[in-house]
Nucleic acid binder design. Structure first.
Lengths: 189, 189
DNA sequence: AAAATCATTTGACAATTGTCACAAAATCAC
DNA sequence: GTGATTTTGTGACAATTGTCAAATGATTTT
């Protein structure tokens, strides 16, 4: 994939960026092809990249002792990043590909530097952060007000195909219930 | 309070803003004094302001049927806003003052317009959004990994004085447990 | 294809928490 | 201060969910 193609993708996915910003953005980007199971970000480490999924999917999870809890999933056309690593801090989650995937990798530091002088890029960060905050608020709302059964049904409805890509174990932890409880929710119909 | 004083407060609270931005910012700001119980933002309505608390405190809550769940509390020197109203949408939470408070009110639309041309202001929004996202992620993490007792103790430790300002009913819903369960957690010592 | 590994389901039981009803304590209004 | 209202605490019980163990089903490896 050459840099013109990357520019095209950036342009269509991030319409807030104007022509010059797209070109600047693309300078710090590269195309990557990874196998299922590849970890893009490790809990406990600092990282200098974020990603856009062109094809494939990923999960983010926290661990505590032996317990593993998924915090989100990402699919085609979605941005993969963590707030912590984006701000130069140690990540508290791991990000792993759920299948062989094609990605565009961006250099965090360079894009952030770009944002200090480039309004478009700063607006891009704003939009992305807003999206993320809305996602988190919605998730909290659902945890407070919806039963685990409603959350399950809502998710399957909102993200068609999720059952094909994500294991029920991961799905259960994402929904905030044990594997067994999810199994029982699915059982009654 | 005159506009120079407001400028001083904005300058010290939002160091990311340079001198000119502070002055521009202050143009869309005003000082307010409200009584306890005043609602700054109503669930189901659009609003055109966000606030900085100079003195006092506030809570944000969702309602569903008769159930009321606090999503956050804000104290001195903190910003009060909701993502939804900030983006011109109907709010899904209500914000109410917990005591007589002194606030600075900002006009959302004007500040957003300022951000389209002013890099500093755009960075200010970035910082504020990042802070908010970190807060939400931390809250989700605690809900997944910590017992309600640990969450209670952690909160009391992190926010000294919260027990004096917030009712136990609100605190319980914020922690994600029933009033009675919180009462029992507090009981055992 | 058999063996091995991994994911999911199911059962039995325990632990946690919610709900309802009411009592006690604190706060507010007059 | 007194009564009324609101907030908090407690008990009894039910409902939900987690945990552990084992069985079944699916997938991968050899």
């Amino acid at each position: 994939m050459n840099s013109t193609e990357i520019e095209e993708i950036i342009k269509s996915r991030f319409p807030v960026l104007n022509k010059d910003s797209v070109i600047a953005f693309a300078k710090f980007s590269s195309f990557l092809n990874f196998k299922k199971g590849k970890k893009l970000i490790y809990e406990g480490k600092k990282h200098h990249s974020f990603y856009l999924i062109l094809k494939g999917s990923a999960k983010a999870y926290y661990t505590k002792e032996t317990k593993e809890v998924c915090s989100w999933f990402a699919f085609e056309n979605e941005v993969i990043a963590t707030i912590k690593t984006f701000n130069g801090l140690v990540s508290n989650e791991t990000i792993m590909l759920l299948e062989d995937s094609k990605l565009i990798q961006f250099n965090t530091k360079s894009i952030k530097e770009l944002a200090t002088t480039n309004l478009d890029v700063s607006h891009f960060l704003n939009d992305t952060l807003t999206e993320h905050a809305v996602f988190l608020e919605e998730k909290l709302y659902q945890l407070q007000f919806m039963s685990s059964e409603e959350r399950y049904k809502g998710l399957v409805n909102d993200v068609p195909g999720i059952l094909q890509k994500v294991s029920l174990t991961d799905l259960a932890s994402f929904l905030g219930v044990s594997r067994e409880t999810l199994s029982r929710i699915r059982g009654k119909r």
